[in-house]
Amino acid sequence: MASDGLVERVRQVYSYVLEESFEPIREPGRIVRVLRERYRLLVDERVVSLVVAAFLAGRPVLFEGPPGTGKTEIGEALLSLWAGKPAFVIPCSENYNEYRVIGDFHPLMAMRHGFSEESFIPRPLLAALVLDAGVLVDEIRRSSEEFQNLLLDVIDKRRIIVPELRTVVRARGEGFQVVFTSNPEDYGQGELSDAFLRRVVRVVFDYPSPEVEVEIVKLRYDVDVPIDDWLVARMAEVAGLLRGRATYKPGPSDTVMWARIAGRLAKLRGHSRVDVRDVVDAASIVLYKRVGEEELVDEAVSRVFGQV
């Protein structure tokens, strides 16, 4: 079992998690409301219900979909609400291994104290298990298969073994849940094994309909210069056009960013409302992502907004 020393060490290193804890929220309707009001996230209640059902079943959830559709943000928020504590985020890369997610030993401390709690540096996965918090494993496809198997083992058995400390750390409540995110269409992505996919509940994210996208932009627009609904609707239309034609497909997060920058431009220019000029100027800042696609962006913008 986990020694008190190890638990104490985790609490010491990750004290902010305990300081920011609150009453967990686990009822889907309430979660949807809080996501909207506190996190400014618009999430379908069905998706929330499915995630809650998966958490109740003790299954990890895989959010899969194109970039900019809110997978990471929604995942982190759901985990936080479920556990009543901020979730840990593990951004994956090829060289991630157990030492970077479970913990490793400080070399100098280890020389002085040997392999003990004093020289041990707990990492997010172990901390989440000890503190009964959620873990968001971002871009799981970028990690190695070995790392994926390690995670699955931890999730299945809800325990971590630290052989150097001769300690087994077990999950203490229902708060320890895992959400993976992945975008199979992005560059440099690996493949997920069948064994991995069999163990997760896969939730597919897609680009929202124009109406929902307008609602998302309005919800997340945070500039005090107002923007008209029809302008937002046209921006969503441009985004839709580019998703069909450009290599870089703007997600709703890009549309939100576009609206925010247009709002700030309007404010700089002393406008009382965001106008078409602001939106069109902001487009080149936000939507020019790949060399050679500027013309595509210009064409889509001028098609929707006309020549400004």
Binding site: P28, E45, R46, V47, S49, L50, V52, A53, A54, L56, A57, R59, P184, D194, L197, R198, V201, R202, V203, V204
Partner: peptide, 28 residues
């Protein structure tokens, strides 16, 4: 998962069925 989802949501309509079954059976 269907059972749990039904309990959480208070019922199952066609969209729910689709969502839950896709989340388990559609691996890729």
């Amino acid at each position: 998962l269907l059972g749990l989802y039904e309990a959480v949501r208070g019922g199952l309509d066609c969209g729910d069925l689709e969502l839950v079954l896709v989340s388990i059976y559609a691996r890729r």
